[in-house]
């Protein structure tokens, strides 16, 4: 695998070069928080952050997106589909867990022109996690603090420079004419050391082996009542989740004109499964929370042969009542089979 190096102080000018060809999204500080935003200059980006509260999923799957607008007259209806942005875009400084999450999106949005166009037009330059945090458990779900899966380039912090791991051809093209030096032996050794240290600092995480079978056989287990008793039923876990991708569509009409909008939806909301008859097959937080766990650790494995969780830990950090997905999964995996 080819590797290059870039000095930390040269990141801003590298971004400036990329900005001539790409719309660049990067972590920036806004009101004492770090968020992914389109930047106008390389100096706006900060790579000195843990992770953003909001995942960058909205860049490829906006929370609110117009699918089409219409204008009807007596005999005709004109439908206008928004044009796709032609300028290629790049997400710089995305964490490896979030970069991996788009591989799941690729399955979920298979055949969706809105997503596919944007996705094909987007490059991912990720930055490995030198200091994984307490809620992180990426290594339990097939990832790692320096996983390159889903990324085009991966940056690894080594002192005053980053080692750039070239993952894809598209990634390699980003570095053409950059003049960055090939990584020397010292840089490679140091990078290996950083990776080992970070991986060793990860917490116990969750046990995946046999979990799907346990979940499938525990659907009616009364433990779900106990596990979800404190759940408030809000949408924090789903909206902050980089892999949650459920959506709703609403029509906003005014007279003879209107638009169809796609918006994020959450399986934690009562409206999600409310049927026209008034029946709700998931009437309480128990059924809704169980759905979230089943979807990630059973249904997505069935559908895509992939775990539907990248272990970013956002749902753990931001859950208002500290309902910890790791604890839930642990309890389920330790259940004796119901006789």
């Amino acid at each position: 695998m080819k590797t290059k190096t870039i000095k930390k102080k040269d990141i801003a000018s590298f971004l400036d070069t990329l900005l001539t060809r790409y719309e660049v999204f990067a972590p920036v500080e806004r009101d004492e928080r770090v968020v992914f935003e389109a930047i106008g200059a390389g100096s706006e980006a900060t790579l000195d952050y843990q992770n953003t509260t909001m995942p960058p999923k909205g860049i490829l799957f906006p929370q609110t997106e117009q699918l089409f607008s219409y204008r009807s007259t007596k005999d005709t209806a004109d439908i206008a589909v928004p044009s796709f942005k032609e300028k290629p875009q790049l997400i710089f400084g995305i964490r490896p867990c979030d970069a991996r999450s788009f591989l799941l999106f690729d399955h979920a949005f298979d055949g969706d022109p809105y997503y596919i166009n944007r996705r094909g037009n987007t490059l991912l330059v990720s930055i490995g996690c030198t200091h994984p945090q307490a809620p992180c458990f990426c290594t339990s779900v097939g990832g790692g603090p320096f996983s390159e899966e889903g990324s085009d380039l991966l940056l690894i912090e080594t002192g005053d420079q980053y080692l750039i791991q070239i993952v894809t051809d598209r990634g390699a093209q980003l570095l053409e004419e950059s003049g960055f030096k090939d990584a020397g032996k010292d840089a490679l050794t140091l990078a290996q050391k950083m990776i080992k240290t970070a991986e060793a600092s990860m917490g116990a995480g969750i046990e995946i082996d046999g979990l799907k079978e346990k979940l499938d056989s525990s659907f009616e287990n009364p433990i779900w009542q106990e596990l979800t008793e404190k759940c408030l039923g809000c949408g924090v876990c789903t909206y902050l989740c980089p892999t949650c991708h459920c959506f709703d569509m609403v029509d906003e009409a005014e007279g003879s004109t209107g638009e169809r909008i796609r918006i994020w939806d959450s399986c934690q909301f009562p409206l999600f499964t409310l049927q026209a008859s008034g029946v709700n097959p998931r009437p309480t937080v128990k059924e809704r929370f169980r759905q979230r766990i089943m979807h990630k650790f059973s249904y997505m494995i069935e559908s895509y042969n992939q775990i539907g969780c990248v272990g970013c830990g956002r749902c753990i950090t931001e859950c208002p009542v500290n309902l910890d997905i790791r604890q839930v999964v642990h309890t389920i995996s330790k259940l004796e089979a119901l006789s």
Binding site: C234, G235, S266
Partner: peptide
């Protein structure tokens, strides 16, 4: 605001059987 309704759901006084935002 990301419309996650954590504020509403954490609020003990937000107990409406159907919240106005949930009416379709």
């Amino acid at each position: 605001c990301i419309r996650c309704y954590a504020c509403r759901n954490a609020c003990p006084l937000c107990y409406c059987q159907e919240c106005f935002v949930d009416s379709s």
